[in-house]
Amino acid sequence: MQLEAIKIDVAIAAKFVQLVLSCINQEYPHNNIFWFESDEDIKPPRELMPAFYGCLDWHSAVHGHWLLARLARYFPDAEFQPTARQALTQTLTPEKIQGEINHFNRCPFFECPYGFSWLLQLATELREWNDSQAKEWLAALEPLETLVANNFYRWLEKLELPDRTGAHFQTAFPLGLALDWAQSRKNKDFADLIEDKAQKFYRSDRNYPLHFEPLGYDFVSPCLGEADLMRRIFSPTDFANWLTDFLPHLLTKDAVNWLQPLQITKPNDYLQSHFRGLNLSRAWMLEGIISRLPDNDSRLDTLRSVTVLHRQCGLVDVASDHYSSSHWLGTFVVYLVTARGLDRYRNPTWTGLNN
């Protein structure tokens, strides 16, 4: 069984762009975890984080801007180009980015690691885009990128135990994004640190109890997030051997029922909307696992079947206008259907961007 390429057409891309444009400057409702040292830290979000204050929380605003850049790069002739570019121009200014830097000087590990990883992805997207405006936006963003990368490194150096939950504090998924960034920047020190920590945290994992998932209102699978990280650092043979120890039941006759998509009964509930993202992120992580296994691996057909099922379920009614989904879910769709996590790895369905 072969995976069929999923394509995003310009009409649905325009819908996601519009959903982001409608919320990147929407300050409320707002949800973030802040550490207050004094009255100076108690300000409206737009004053604390003048670039990325919308979309309910900082990380959603960051990856909303990533979506704008990704789709503007992907569809160079789309009608949404002017509005997407205008939004990026309004946000990515030296003055607003300096305001973000001021915030991180007070709270150096705010939104670490999840938000950090998306900020690095935004910088990577702009850097890989052969576009004169993208170069200007990147120039404005680079001081924050450098600060976030340095703080991320400091945080990871001291990390002794991974977070194995399925939401923002999970360790494995953001390390995968950060490793992609470090490799693209040829930042050997950071890449080596990530690989060392991944080996320490996950190399000896065995017999993962997948039946416990989701652990709560997960939007990223702890199991697949870990495997998607490890496929980035192992050779195909070593990864196949590690996966055998990690998920041995994939080799049993019952493997066809290995993983079922989550069913959403309350689509407008903020927490249950996470399950929509979980189906999507499972799909792209399964694709990552597939991309690293040897071509003759006996588990490939099972993994492909499960991937297709999660794709199909994840993409149902995904362009919902309700804010519980609209402020973030488009990012997960775009990450999946444009194969962002596979750009620098073997990927049989990815044909690349125009620029």
Rank of each mutant, 00 (worst) to 15 (best):
Q2K: 12
L3E: 05
E4G: 05
I6V: 15
I6D: 06
I6G: 05
D9H: 12
A13R: 01
L19A: 08
L19W: 00
N25D: 14
N31Q: 06
F34E: 13
W35Y: 09
W35L: 12
E40N: 10
P45T: 03
P45W: 04
R46T: 07
P50D: 08
G54Q: 07
L56G: 02
D57N: 13
H59D: 05
S60L: 04
H65E: 01
L67D: 10
L68Q: 11
A69S: 15
T83D: 10
A84R: 08
A87Y: 10
T89S: 11
P94Q: 10
H103S: 11
F104R: 08
L120G: 06
L120E: 09
L122D: 10
E125F: 01
E125N: 02
D131H: 11
Q133R: 03
Q133F: 02
A134K: 05
L144N: 05
A149T: 15
R154H: 05
R154V: 04
W155M: 07
G166P: 13
H168F: 09
F169P: 03
F169Y: 09
F169V: 04
A178M: 12
A182M: 07
R185T: 08
F190E: 10
A191Q: 09
L193D: 00
K197A: 10
Q199V: 10
Y202M: 01
S204R: 10
D205W: 13
P209D: 11
S221A: 11
S221N: 06
P222H: 06
I233T: 07
T237Q: 14
N241G: 00
L243K: 03
T244Q: 13
L247M: 08
L250K: 06
T252E: 11
T252P: 01
W258K: 02
P261F: 07
T265G: 08
K266M: 03
N268A: 04
N268H: 12
Y270N: 02
H274M: 00
G277T: 04
W284L: 14
M285K: 04
I290T: 06
R292Y: 01
N296P: 06
S298C: 08
S298I: 13
L303T: 05
L303R: 09
S305W: 02
L315I: 02
V318C: 06
H322R: 02
Y323V: 06
Y323S: 05
S325P: 02
V334S: 02
A339H: 15
A339I: 03
R346T: 12
R346H: 15
G352T: 11
L353D: 13
